[in-house]
Amino acid sequence: MTRLSIRGVGVVGGFGCGLDAFDRALVSGVPSTMQVTPVPGNESVLRSAFLADTGPLEEFLNKRALRRIDHFSRLALLGSHLALQDAGMLGAIPERVGLVIASGYGALRTTFSFLDSIIDDGDSCASPTHFSNSVHNAAAAHVAIKLNIGGPNLTVSQFEMSVSSALLTAQLWLEEGRVDHVVFGGVDEYSAVLGYCWERFRYGAIDMVTLGHLSGGLPILPKETVYILGADGHPQCSAKYPEFVPKGASVASYAPLYGSLPVGQAFDLAAAALAMRDGRLCATPGNVAGETDWQIVGAEDLGRRDICCLKMDDNGGYGFLTVTKGRG
């Protein structure tokens, strides 16, 4: 396996532009965010977002050259120029240089602007500029053209695995002798639609749903989680929970607040969603029947824990679902 040598680094983000700005952010530990309105037309809802300024790109390219280049590609251009400047290669690009850009989402702003132009003006009058910049490899093309990189050029999009996957490609190019150097970078941007989606998905995501019967053996429950038990007062059901939930586990039961009913687990799911949204757990009202060796949940921070909602019946049936942070 070829060992990759890092010649130069260029960064731009909500913290600012350049290694010095990033280093100051790392040392201070203080995030630098701006307020955005994720819900269109509702300015009372504000959220923090990391927004990058590409203004410093004009130190490398004039405004005329950037006129038809969108924000996403400008991020890629700025990061590339900064990295090559740090490596002492800006203005003297060797011939055998490849380019790999990783992106989880691609040019979101431009893509949705293009879709808006179709909705507003019809497909025959949709913006050709937005379309050309919305293509995933547009940023890599702009970088290659402006920096005169004539080697292999690839954009890798694999969501959270994009960077690792793209670096493997760069490594293979070097091992195969296709190139002597690789300009590598990762680019993603905030967009109004992304902010709206995060606002809509603030309740977390249901990661796993399992239905089974004790006749098939005990299921494997997720670890390092908070268990919300649907123990609603039926002694035949409540007695079975200790068979599932290990001693010392963090356990809550909110059945005393919604009553005893077959679909009570839906209320448990709602309680888990609220905990994900607010990052905190509400105290368990009263006692949890079945086990004295559990850690009964009080009013406390949720932290990084997931939540497992578990429901038993009196015939050995069980169902549980896991709620996690983030989106589905």
Rank of each mutant, 00 (worst) to 15 (best):
T2W: 01
R7C: 14
D23T: 14
R24F: 03
P31L: 09
T33W: 08
P40G: 07
G41K: 14
E43T: 15
E43D: 15
S44H: 13
S44W: 13
V45W: 15
R47H: 12
D53K: 01
T54R: 03
L57T: 06
E58W: 08
A65F: 03
A76P: 09
G79Y: 11
H81D: 08
G88N: 08
I93C: 09
S103F: 00
G106D: 06
A107Y: 00
S117V: 04
S127M: 08
P128N: 08
V135A: 02
K146I: 04
L147F: 00
N153S: 15
V156P: 05
M161P: 00
S164N: 11
S164K: 10
L167E: 02
S191W: 00
A192E: 12
V193S: 08
W198S: 02
R200I: 07
F201I: 12
R202E: 09
M208T: 15
V209A: 11
H213E: 15
S215W: 00
G216I: 12
A231C: 15
A231D: 14
Q236N: 14
Q236T: 05
S238D: 15
L261C: 08
L261Q: 11
A270M: 15
L281F: 01
T284I: 11
A289L: 11
E291D: 11
T292A: 07
V297D: 04
A299G: 05
R305H: 01
D313M: 04
D314R: 13
